[in-house]
């Protein structure tokens, strides 16, 4: 099953499940996990297309940069989540709806 469609199918399914997680949950950490699923789906597509369209390295380089940015995003976002938890009793993403104090 070395078939591009299989990888694109898995990537599309992971993307959809990530969007579903981000849309249906109101807990901020669920939203972050959905974002990680989406980033993984995109990176998987990059690597699969690069392998099947000429066996180039560029798709893997893009995926490595996606992993780098995902690490940075997760660190900053969890810092923000901790601050939300500090200011509000919960980490419900619909609670912080005003700027400043």
């Amino acid at each position: 099953m070395d078939h591009l469609a299989g990888y694109v199918f898995i990537g599309a399914a992971m993307f959809v499940l990530g969007v579903f997680t981000m849309v249906t949950r109101r807990n901020a950490i669920y939203v972050l996990m959905g974002a990680e699923l989406i980033l993984n789906a995109a990176a998987l597509n990059f690597v699969a297309f690069a392998r099947h369209l000429g066996n180039r390295l560029d798709g893997q380089m893009f995926a490595i940069f996606i992993v780098i940015l995902a690490a940075a995003e997760a660190a900053v976002a969890l810092g923000i989540v901790l601050q939300i938890h500090h200011h509000f009793p919960s980490i419900d993403v619909s609670k912080p709806d005003r700027l400043g104090d």
Binding site: I29, L32, M33, E36, A70, A71, A74, A75, L78, V81, L82, H85, P89, S90, I91
Partner: peptide
């Protein structure tokens, strides 16, 4: 990143 998530879960209500 998963360890970060676990810590985030442990530090929130």
């Amino acid at each position: 990143i998963t360890i970060l998530f676990i810590y985030g879960i442990m530090l929130t209500p």
